[in-house]
Design a protein around this nucleic acid. Structure first.
Lengths: 196, 196
DNA sequence: TTTCGCATGTAAGCTGTTACATGATTCC
DNA sequence: GGAATCATGTAACAGCTTACATGCGAAA
């Protein structure tokens, strides 16, 4: 009777967010950006169709809020069936991500690239990591005032971000040194038109 | 005249591998598995179509090798145009990956999950990381005999893998401790049917 | 008055995965 | 004889990104 087609990851993610509190599609966008953006992203075009599908499967309900003037705001709420579906997914082992790190791929082939460009790639990455660490510091501060029962779990994911970012920064420093010694070892490599 | 449609990432990755040495599609599969699998993966169905496209664009050439009996082996080689295209891509900034870490997503919603299952998720991950570190140790050993001019760049990506994996292991240990204290704090949370 | 944030949604196109299809050779 | 590895490829489907379309309200 209950056909229960398996949901996609986007739908589980939204179900999870709605399990923490009722929200509109727009709220979901913002929440994703503010709280899970460092380990889980959704692109804009995914959210509304996913919500529509969840509604069709009765995993969430929708109430229209018109309190603020003429703007239509659809607030979604998880159902008992939705919570059950979510919990059933949460206990299953997570699929490991498919690694696709373009920076590493480019460095892997770095012999074909002028050294100053390889350096620039790493330097740029370093800057991104530094600003990411700052974001984590800000989130850490905000969480000190937070009373949600989810707090401990949020801290676990935040801690992951901090630790991995710090490790990446360490790698950047080491790699910058290595790249500099490579430049010294073959200073005219490209100007000579030497081939490998 | 030269239309030069932009290539996709798979095509650049293959071009990069072929810039290191001529290979067949099957060799590419194996090389990806053996050397870039921790930062770059391709699924099976991608390789042959990508190769066909590169051939059409004259970025690679193909010679058929029938030396070993009746088996057909197509060996691909990068062309001057292909190398130019590759280098042009290598100097452009890498696009940051879209983060999608299912383990973290599940832990983020971990309040809905029995503590022993959250623990198991992390424990499983820890085991995967340990065996990954072993793989890196083996690769490190193999590289000591390697004379390729690409060696320094290979080491840079390997070093990334080691450092990040170690950081993830540190996080696992810390998280296991945290999850255990959470279990102590709310030992009967789920049996009581308490809701959040 | 123009820009920004709120708010919902669609569609085309690209990317990626899985399963399938085929068949030879080598090793146990 | 059967399994694993070598070797090439296709097709259906699932997933994801980007750009577009619409329009209100508030602030600058």
């Amino acid at each position: 009777m209950c056909a229960m087609n398996r949901l996609n990851k986007t739908q589980y993610a939204l179900l999870g967010l709605l399990s923490q509190e009722p929200m509109s599609g727009y709220d979901i966008k913002k929440t994703l950006k503010a709280s899970t953006q460092h380990f889980w992203q959704e692109s804009d075009g995914q959210i509304y169709p996913a919500l529509a599908q969840l509604l069709k499967e009765k995993l969430i309900t929708c109430t229209v809020d018109q309190s603020q003037g003429a703007r239509i705001r659809k607030v979604y709420q998880i159902t008992a069936k939705g919570l059950k579906t979510l919990k059933n997914w949460l206990i299953k082992a997570a699929e490991p991500p498919v690694p696709r790190n373009e920076l590493l791929l480019k460095l892997f082939f770095g012999l074909h690239t002028p050294s100053e460009i390889n350096l620039k790639h790493v330097l740029d990455h370093q800057q991104q990591l530094i600003s990411r660490l700052k974001t984590y510091q800000e989130i850490t501060k905000m969480l000190t005032h937070e009373k949600s029962p989810h707090l401990s779990y949020w801290k676990i994911t935040l801690n992951y971000g901090k630790k991995i970012t710090q490790a990446q920064l360490d790698w950047c420093e080491e790699t910058l040194k290595t790249l500099k010694t490579l430049t010294l070892a073959h200073p005219l490599e490209f100007k000579k038109g030497k081939k490998y």
